[in-house]
Design a protein around this nucleic acid. Structure first.
Length: 595
RNA sequence: GGCCUCGUAGUUCAAUGGAUAGAAUAGAAGUUUCCUAAACUUUAGAUGCAAGUUCGAUUCUUGCCGAGGCUACCA
């Protein structure tokens, strides 16, 4: 027996149309029957009218009659306008349930050969991570987990932007104003300390511009000629030349930042299989560019800069190498992509988790790789997501308007603690247990808040209105999971019998709805993988949980006198709990035993 | 200017071209001698505007209005 009733019906509907009208139908359109109509699955008749002439209601009736007679799982039907609503027998759902109930891996596909590399996070090392990075990290991590669950082998990676003028700015400011401060001497997290000097640089820079303008220098000129900026540029040149002092400072300050990042990643619950550093890879692309120049993919301008002409594809000309021969962002990305395929030959596709402000960049990058003749260029995907904006607009590190990642996580944990303390359900928990739980809930709220939104859409985050803990939220789902665990503990204590195969004569409406929702889990994972969308998993889980709470309210589980029904309901609850856990794992959210 | 996203209840989010556009939150009204009330039940409230394609459009096309982004020898 097939697990999905649609697959059964698909064949049978075609068979019916063929038997009744002698016409071969290419496809059949299904949808779940809306709540306000009777039935479980609905066949939409309208699209058939292109092939079968006639009255949709009549056609629906005829197909329905055929199905009822020929398909044992079909227990009844009704036709409303052009919609054929089909009722499926309880025994179908029960037998499905028995088949999957003890499979904790239900919906997950074992890893196959097909490997994909998912890049995410990829921060600059001159400042701490903020809410924008949080979205990136959560998205990348979750998509990687979803791809794994859909049967792909996944390598998580990032490219760390550890060199460039922005780092030199922090370094220079530290040299000038730092008085030898270190994370140890200040007690500050390394990334925070370095970030402070990035801000300090900007402040000094702006002051210098103001001074110059006061002296009558044009603003645009002042912006280019402020002494501190010129010095930062000089520092970058020294770095590229391998100046010992500069390189050593660079290593030292980056080391501070990495330590800070590591803490943030750990708290956020994300991880990586392999790291790439821009300082290692920025030269790689140059050879490829030289090659491409020979092949005529690129061309050289008089000043020596190298370009690609993409006007035929409706894009512009794009620079791939500066006139002084140094690499630009694009050069490095070309090199990095090629290096990754060399390092992981089984990789058959890469996902770049990068904000939508870089849509154009990736369009160009993929096109260049294709023109260079790399067949895998077709398998590259830019997971483009919307920015996280504040009510005041875009977050800007330099202006200090960012929502810091560490602070945010701490805030969320505090809020979870406050709510939990007020409810006072966990008096017997130790402080350590409480602490762990509050973090789980706080992060659950944050992660769900971000991941439930379609990645493409921008998120407006108002720090004044804290993230909800009620309604369509992570904690609501965690709470339901905890409730289920409570039932399971009690069922165990009271020795509720646990049959290998549950057996009940008929299903309560809510029970059937729950099984239907469980049935959707595998296809939801596949859909989420195809669309690179954790939001689909989040929405699915919410629907499941909402249905369960309604069931929980309406139907007594442990209070049921019929032992077979009681057993079934306990096992159904367990399956729902297990599905919540699996789904949330794909979002990187943990679930509690109690809360 | 050119190119790319996005406009859905007061607010935050849903809706493979399908039925009466779903939730949450804020608002109103209820449910705790009953398995955890971070819950459940009821109620009111929305597709920016205008055409077009279609049996049928929130979804596809075009125009307008509005928001954001890209258009650097920055990353």
């Amino acid at each position: 027996m097939l697990m999905n009733i649609q697959k059964v019906l698909d064949e049978k509907v075609k068979e019916a149309v063929s038997a009744i009208y002698g016409i071969a139908l290419p496809t059949v359109e299904f949808q779940p029957t809306r709540k306000d109509f009777e039935g479980d699955v609905t066949v939409v008749v309208f699209p058939m009218l292109r092939h079968v002439k006639g009255n949709p209601v009549q056609i629906g009736e005829q197909i329905g009659t055929y199905l009822k007679k020929e398909v044992s799982e079909v227990s009844g039907f009704n036709v409303v306008k052009g919609f054929l609503n089909i009722s499926i027998s309880d025994s179908f759902y029960l037998s499905f349930f028995n088949k999957v109930k003890d499979n904790d891996e239900f919906g997950l596909i074992a890893v196959q050969d097909d490997a994909v590399m998912v890049e995410y996070s990829s921060p600059n090392t001159n400042k701490p991570l903020h809410l924008g990075h949080v979205r990136n990290n959560l998205l990348g991590y979750s998509v990687a987990e979803i791809l794994k669950a859909s049967g792909k082998k996944v390598y998580k990676t990032q490219i760390i932007n550890d060199r460039g003028i922005h780092i030199c700015k922090s370094m220079l400011a530290w040299q000038r104003f730092g008085n030898g401060e270190t994370p140890e001497s200040t007690g500050l997290k390394g990334d925070k300390l370095v970030g402070n000097y990035y801000v300090a640089f900007d402040k000094a820079y702006k002051e210098e511009i103001a001074e110059l303008v006061a002296k009558g220098v044009e603003k645009e000129v002042a912006e280019k000629e402020a002494p501190i900026l010129l010095e930062a540029q000089k520092m970058l040149q020294k770095w590229e030349a391998g100046d010992e002092e500069v390189v050593s400072l660079w290593k030292r300050m980056n080391g501070w930042v990495y330590e800070g990042f590591e803490t943030t990643y750990k708290n956020l619950g994300v991880d990586f299989d392999t790291y790439y550093y821009e300082s290692d890879t920025y030269l790689l692309g140059k050879d490829v560019v030289a090659d491409g120049l020979e092949k005529g993919v690129f061309y050289k301008k008089e000043d020596g800069s190298v370009w690609i002409d993409l006007t035929d594809e409706g894009l512009d000309e794009k620079i791939v190498l500066r006139s002084d021969g140094t690499a630009v962002y694009m050069t490095q990305d070309i090199g990095t992509a090629i290096q990754r395929v060399k390092d992981y030959p089984d990789v058959n596709g890469m996902v770049y988790t990068v904000g939508n402000e870089q849509d154009y960049h990736f369009k160009v990058l993929f096109l260049i790789l294709k023109k260079l003749g790399f067949t895998w260029a077709d398998k590259l995907y830019h997971l483009s997501y919307g920015m996280v904006d504040l009510p005041s607009g875009k977050m800007k590190s330099r202006e200090g308007t960012v929502v810091d990642a560490d602070d945010l996580m701490e805030d969320m944990t505090q809020t979870a603690a406050a709510i939990s303390e007020e409810l006072g359900k966990l008096e017997d928990y130790s402080d350590a247990e409480k602490k762990e739980l509050y973090k789980m809930i706080g992060l659950g709220a944050l992660k769900y808040f971000i991941l439930k939104v379609d990645p493409k859409k921008r998120i407006l985050f108002d720090p004044k209105e804290s993230v909800d803990f009620q309604g369509n939220t992570g904690p609501f789902i965690q709470y339901t999971y905890a409730r289920i665990q409570s039932i399971l503990r009690k069922a165990k204590e009271t020795n509720v019998e646990r049959a290998a195969l549950v057996e009940v004569s008929e299903l309560h409406l809510k029970e059937k709805e729950l099984i239907k929702q469980i049935q959707l889990f595998p296809e939801t994972i596949q859909l989420a993988a195809e669309n690179y969308s954790p939001a689909l998993i989040a929405n699915y889980t919410y629907d499941l949980v909402k249905e369960f709470n309604s069931f929980y309210q309406q139907v007594s589980i442990l209070g049921e006198e019929d032992v077979k029904k009681k057993d079934f309901r306990v096992q159904l609850s367990q399956k729902v709990g297990n599905t919540i856990q699996s789904a949330f794992k794909l979002l990187g959210i943990d679930v509690p035993e109690r809360m």
